[in-house]
Design a protein around this nucleic acid. Structure first.
Ligand SMILES: NC(=O)c1ccc[n+]([C@@H]2O[C@H](COP(=O)([O-])OP(=O)(O)OC[C@H]3O[C@@H](n4cnc5c(N)ncnc54)[C@H](O)[C@@H]3O)[C@@H](O)[C@H]2O)c1
Ligand SMILES: NC(=O)c1ccc[n+]([C@@H]2O[C@H](COP(=O)([O-])OP(=O)(O)OC[C@H]3O[C@@H](n4cnc5c(N)ncnc54)[C@H](O)[C@@H]3O)[C@@H](O)[C@H]2O)c1
Lengths: 227, 227
DNA sequence: AATGTAATGTGAAAAGCTTCACAATTGAAT
DNA sequence: ATTCAATTGTGAAGCTTTTCACATTACATT
């Protein structure tokens, strides 16, 4: 047993948390939000697992990387665990996000209230189309892409959502990196080159449809593919 | 059963193909399309890997699950390999897709020409909003959600893209399943329950933003960029 | 024909991730 | 106070995926 006073969360130094674990934390967070609304005070790994189609062992293992949040015999305190996960994921704060490319998908994302509710506030929009620059989208005036660097800095932007055509995505991402942004969510179906210290995630919808196509054609089972 | 002579593709019975391998096939396909446009006739696993930030061994291993498509000393024939992958993924044909929920994100997806170019043709739209039913989106008249089952069948729809509010997603998905659809791409941030024989994929954008948030806050060293 | 070079295809090793299984702990019931 | 039931936290086992390394093959050059 530990003799010192344990402040629930563990130090992560030296530990490598897998991408899958991080993604599952998002699922736990979502499930806990719902459980909280439904009035649950505690939840077992078994119930939490069932809610997101995972296994109880997986839930416990994932959480154990970050601390001991549960009570043996009882389960996890819903509200507290939710807060803990928010801290781990870094969503216990507001992130100032800019979006570049106010086209079809960009407009849809700006209108999406759930992002702001999760702490991701889109506060800046950029485009290169003169008809769009200066126009108002959900209370935000679209800025000229030529002012990207200065306005990103002025507004303390920390993340950028990129929804420009694939043909210009690499050029724009280079500008975003030059401006000092460290995290980018890209929707263009192209493999962007960024320095090692930039966090880049890609949203690839065609890939998901192609997965479905493969599944049907090869008569494959959801988790483990059997041909 | 089959007494066919062996064609270039391997017999895959009993072999398990990982989800990652399938996803990487999509990336190879994308890279090959580009290489073809650029005029390349052959490509080595080394070059193909560099194009999508993977390793040459991974490329060769992935492809080897499905056959021997390359020539030692030379590499892979670009156009042929592209066709082979199209067959494997089942995108050497047109898929008839319906979209349910013509809101912000649904409208963006309907306008997205790249899907059709990849063989995913959105040919049917459904909504429950009287102001939307009967209206024209990119040449498609929005149908009443109440006619879902009959119209999906009449139109030989094989996949559904679901872009309705999270609160009604489970109800709608039940109807879609009842109508005999086997593949669904869901955008609502909710864990949908479907029978084992239904292929369901989820597009979760909040999860990607939360990953970025985690990465920044924890100064997370990423092994690889998420596909 | 022989040699050199490039690059595949693939078993085997290494690394990574998930599941197992159980001691430990808590709260409730007797 | 003791027993019982529930459930966590975790090392170890089991499984999957990735990487390694090299024999093999094809073509070009001499
Ligand atoms: N629409 C979808 O459903 C969908 C789905 C998946 C992926 N995508 C991808 O998302 C991206 C955007 O798609 P879309 O359908 O919204 O396209 P779109 O043409 O509607 O929007 C692109 C926007 O980017 C702006 N833009 C172009 N060049 C720019 C530049 N140099 N600087 C700043 N802004 C610039 C345009 O003015 C336009 O507003 C594309 O890469 C597309 O492949 C779209
Ligand atoms: N907008 C985004 O950028 C975004 C991003 C990620 C996820 N999502 C998710 O996608 C879904 C749609 O988001 P949105 O922003 O487009 O919302 P939206 O409200 O603009 O669109 C939803 C559409 O579904 C229709 N609808 C509602 N109930 C229906 C029913 N019973 N049958 C048929 N149609 C019905 C509505 O009439 C509307 O047209 C939501 O689940 C949302 O969480 C949206």
């Amino acid at each position: 047993m530990s003799t010192d006073i344990d402040t629930s969360s563990k130090s992560l130094s030296g530990k490598r948390i897998s991408e899958s674990t991080i993604n599952r934390l998002s699922l736990y967070y979502r499930a806990l939000s719902l459980l909280e609304k439904e009035g649950y005070e505690t939840v077992s790994s078994k119930v939490l697992a069932r809610r997101e189609k995972l296994t109880p062992a997986q839930v416990r293992k994932d959480l154990s990387f970050f601390g001991s949040f549960g009570t043996r015999g009882l389960g996890y305190p819903v509200a507290d665990l939710k807060k803990e996960i928010a801290v781990i994921l870094g969503i216990d704060r507001v992130w100032r996000v800019a979006l570049v490319g106010i086209g079809n998908i960009g407009s849809a994302l700006v209108s999406y209230k759930e992002f702001a509710r999760q702490g991701f506030q889109i506060v800046k929009l950029f485009d290169n189309d003169q008809r769009k620059i200066g126009s108002n989208h959900k209370g935000i005036i679209v800025s000229d892409i030529n002012n990207l660097a200065t306005e990103l800095a002025e507004d303390n932007i920390e993340m950028v959502v990129l929804t420009v055509p694939a043909t210009v995505a690499q050029y724009i991402v280079d500008e975003i990196v030059k401006a000092g942004i460290k995290a980018i969510l890209n929707f263009a179906p192209v493999n962007l080159k960024v320095p090692d210290d930039i966090y880049l995630r890609n949203e690839n919808m065609s890939m998901e449809l192609e997965y479905l196509s493969f599944a049907i054609v090869n008569n494959h089972t959801q988790k483990k593919v059997k041909l």
